[in-house]
Amino acid sequence: MNDARETKLPVGEPVAARGPVAVFDSIHAVLAAERAFLTAALVCDLVPIPRGVTSDCGLALLFRATDIESARAIFADPALGERLRGIFVPGPDGYIPDAMNSPQP
């Protein structure tokens, strides 16, 4: 089993400096989304779901802001889209819903 992944995006920085996060129903869906990103050669990482988004105790998919259109295309696949609770982008005081997506917290 390949369980050693390098951190590919900076974490621990001010939210405003970070990329968007995609939040899913379950760790199963998060890992499926990560596989889809890796298949599409997009850089991503898994981070704890920001508290401002939901109090859920799972992980979110963090990706580059420049890849948000590609992310939307990937999440158009119903297998992932049905499990997507929303895309959230950094705002001045924390993460806010992406205007193009209706989050389902």
């Binding site: 089993m1 390949n2 369980d3 050693a4 992944r5 379950s26 760790i27 199963h28 890992l31 898994l46 981070v47 704890p48 779901i49 105790c57 799972g58 992980l59």
Partner: peptide, 15 residues
């Protein structure tokens, strides 16, 4: 797996 955000939990989730 799927409970915490640390790397050991993530390894468990991947496994």
């Amino acid at each position: 797996p799927g409970r915490s955000g640390h790397s050991l939990s993530l390894r468990a989730a991947r496994l």
